[in-house]
């Protein structure tokens, strides 16, 4: 198959970027999108043009590193990550526009790579369950109803890719944050810190400069882990409850 790529090139965080056009010739339809870029890069190196920089690692759809916006859609058409997108999904001679994930809190580092450390800082604010290593009670000491465990697992499936914030017209990170607060808050182990966790994570999210959720549901549409926006509703509710408790000084 043959394509024309319009790729965002930007040398560094402070430099200004631009689109460059590259032909992609004889691409096997079984190649993944990233393998297509590999082929294009080999060609660029031939011509002594610096290859396109893009983040990737596992290439299995689980590590959340790959982060391309393809034709305006983070991770491109269909469910799943960029690395799990295969060229047979496109038609011959398509013009494909490739951009980095865009959001103020995700500054571009180079070409198609962005800095998503804001997500790490949100987790550091409270996205964990405090316990002391080695002193945990027996795992079966506290049974958890399968339905709860499964729901928590739905939320825990988040791979932290950032596509939600990249797709959101407001660059809101609500789907990511609500997935983590949902996962930890649903489990009995996480209950004691629940309110504090929610307050801290949402406040950090705001400080990092993410937008507000307007219930656009674009995040849900692109989320490779299929996290439902229902978790955002849950967070909206739980955050207000937590704030109320904090306000009246109730134990939180």
């Amino acid at each position: 198959m043959n394509f024309t790529l319009r790729v965002w090139r930007q040398n560094g965080p402070k430099e200004s970027g631009r689109f460059e056009e590259y032909p992609a010739h004889d691409i096997p339809s079984d190649a993944s999108f990233l393998e297509m870029l590999d082929i294009v890069n080999e060609g660029l190196i031939e011509k002594s043009v610096e290859p396109i920089t893009f983040d990737h690692d596992c290439r299995e759809g689980i590590c959340g590193t790959c982060s391309l916006t393809i034709n305006g859609i983070p991770h491109g058409p269909g469910r799943g990550t960029t690395c799990q997108l295969y060229m047979r999904k496109f038609s011959d001679r398509d013009v494909i526009t490739v951009e980095p994930f865009r959001a103020a809190p995700f500054p571009v580092l180079r070409d198609l790579t962005v800095d998503r450390s804001a997500f790490d800082r949100i987790i550091q604010a409270g996205g964990f369950i405090s316990e002391r290593c080695g002193s945990a009670p027996d795992a079966n000491a506290l049974p958890i109803p399968k339905t709860i465990a499964d729901l928590a697992m739905d939320a825990a499936a988040c791979i932290g890719c950032g596509a939600c914030a990249a797709a959101c017209p407001n660059s809101s990170a609500m789907l990511f944050v609500s997935a983590k607060t949902g996962h930890l808050g649903l489990l009995p182990q996480g209950k004691s810190e629940k309110n504090r966790r929610i307050l801290k994570m949402v406040r950090t999210m705001d400080e990092e400069g993410f937008g507000n959720c307007s219930n656009y549901y674009a995040c849900e549409a692109v989320c490779p882990a299929g996290i439902p926006a229902a978790f955002i509703a849950r967070l909206n509710r739980e955050y207000t409850v937590a704030s109320a408790k904090e306000t009246v000084g109730a134990a939180y």
Binding site: E131, A139, A149, M153, H183, Q189
Partner: peptide, 8 residues
């Protein structure tokens, strides 16, 4: 204890 949601 950390909240790893193992199958149940």
């Amino acid at each position: 204890a950390q909240g790893v949601p193992f199958a149940r």
